[in-house]
Amino acid sequence: MRSYNIAKRPLWVLAAVLAGSIHSGAVAHSAAPLSATIAPTELQQRDNSLYLALGEYQGLSQLMEAFVLAIAVDERVIHHFERVDIERFHQMLTLHLCELTGGPCEYTGADMVEVHRGMRISSAEFNAVVENLITAMQQQQLSVSTQNRLLAILAAMQHEIVYPQEQK
């Protein structure tokens, strides 16, 4: 597993590395990975309208790419991502949001409390990341409705991410 120590590099180098790694990754994940698909019967019961509005897996993957790139140039929060494997981060984000928005995916990563344990993320840092997501959604020209639907889902996780975290 690769990890980038991005703190010591100029940000434009980081952005270039990120863009390159995500683009090479995006090809492999342009459709939902087979291993992550779920049974069709369960699929039919899900409201996947948000997933469709986001442009399905391809659209989500592009959105998460823009999101990760916005984070990469954000000095307010970049220190939290110093030891993060960016490719895997992008992939897990996309998969998780695919599941949360009603897409045919199953997020297999750790829960949000587990993922953010020990990071001591402040409320202001969480808000900064939300702003990065809004920037990314604007870049992808998503409608206000779609943006609000996605923000509401993610805002519900705030208490699991911001320190001190509430245990579920």
């Binding site: 779609t146 609000n148 639907r149 923000l151 509401a152």
Partner: peptide, 10 residues
């Protein structure tokens, strides 16, 4: 505030 209120407005 409700981020996703009526008509998907905040």
């Amino acid at each position: 505030a409700w981020l996703d209120g009526p008509w998907h407005r905040t």
